[in-house]
Computed example of a mutant assay.
Amino acid sequence: MTGVLASINSRTQLVGQNRLELLLFRFNTNQLYGINVFKVREVIRCPSLSILPRSNPNICGVANIRGVSIPILDLAMATGLPGVEDKASAFVIITEYNTRTQGFLVYAVEHIVNLNWEDIHPPPKGSGEDNYLTAVTRLGDQLVEIIDVEKVLAQISPTSEEISQGVVGADMTHLAPKFRVLTVDDSAVARKQVTRCLETVGVEVVALNDGRQALNYLRSMLDEGRKPEDEFLMMISDIEMPEMDGYTLTAEIRSDPRMSDFHIVLHTSLSGSFNQSMVKKVGANDFLAKFRPDDLAGRVVARIRATTVQ
């Protein structure tokens, strides 16, 4: 499996072309699941685990990997499925989300597939809000389910949504309510986190589910003679989204001269220095790692003050 992942660092050219690569894996059944390769640091056989007293029941234990203690999560159990029974023959996918490193225990790891985000779709309607899927796709006649890892991690190890004192000044009480912010994210958990944070700042929030929906929304505004930059302080968009990713959304917006001045911040759990270069390549104004309430609120406050000064 090390060989399968050896070329991940050379695959960044896919970003910005509305393409992604999924590492496929299974739990105890034939159902295929996928995770974005850019979230994966390595795949290993399940190492010896040390049990953590009073830890979440979905945490199998802690593994010492090259001198670093990493929590190992039974991803199947965390999503309500039977947990992996034979840990000795299982694999661990070491991942990084929102600057946190953790391992996902899975039964088997398959291969990497190269896909277009247009082939990645939201979960079927009627699947309910309690499901743990963020998207689905098909490989031939087989369905691949993409788990909403942010939702899983938020339930097992919640991130504080509190904004530190002093980040939002007293002047925002009067200034912020005059502004609206457009947010785009396919994860329901992430949408709620961002919305609550921005509403604490005091701005009005319009939240959309993916890049395609956002682009259609903005174009419909233009067709009506309305300029997004006149109605929204900024757009804060996730990068990984079905139908159209945040890089492609940004590039499409910038290709329309009517939206050349629309302020765009890309907000993602993806880690890696390539994000900074991609921000410049597609024309975004800024990049922000998830989920840091102080940083997010600070960006909005700074934008409000800069706009007010102008």
Results as ranks from 00 to 15, higher is better:
residue 2 T to W: 08
residue 182 L to V: 04
residue 41 R to T: 09
residue 95 T to G: 01
residue 143 L to A: 11
residue 110 E to C: 07
residue 62 V to N: 06
residue 292 R to T: 12
residue 233 L to Q: 04
residue 38 F to L: 13
residue 94 I to E: 03
residue 248 T to E: 14
residue 77 M to R: 13
residue 246 G to E: 03
residue 269 S to C: 06
residue 57 P to N: 10
residue 158 P to K: 00
residue 66 R to M: 05
residue 164 S to W: 09
residue 296 L to Y: 09
residue 276 Q to K: 15
residue 144 V to R: 05
residue 9 N to D: 11
residue 165 Q to D: 14
residue 16 G to W: 04
residue 79 T to H: 05
residue 6 A to E: 11
residue 210 D to F: 01
residue 43 V to E: 01
residue 61 G to Y: 12
residue 137 T to L: 13
residue 282 V to Y: 08
residue 111 H to G: 00
residue 24 L to V: 08
residue 288 L to C: 12
residue 45 R to S: 14
residue 295 D to F: 14
residue 105 L to C: 12
residue 235 M to S: 07
residue 65 I to N: 07
residue 187 S to Q: 03
residue 138 R to W: 15
residue 4 V to C: 05
residue 180 R to M: 10
residue 28 N to R: 11
residue 264 I to H: 03
residue 124 P to E: 06
residue 206 V to H: 11
residue 49 L to C: 06
residue 30 N to C: 01
residue 4 V to H: 08
residue 165 Q to H: 15
residue 240 E to R: 11
residue 171 D to A: 11
residue 224 E to F: 07
residue 211 G to N: 01
residue 279 V to K: 10
residue 251 A to I: 01
residue 301 V to N: 03
residue 20 L to T: 15
residue 120 I to K: 08
residue 232 F to P: 15
residue 141 D to V: 13
residue 257 P to K: 12
residue 280 K to I: 00
residue 239 I to A: 04
residue 294 D to V: 04
residue 111 H to D: 06
residue 233 L to C: 01
residue 173 T to A: 11
residue 183 T to N: 04
residue 170 A to P: 13
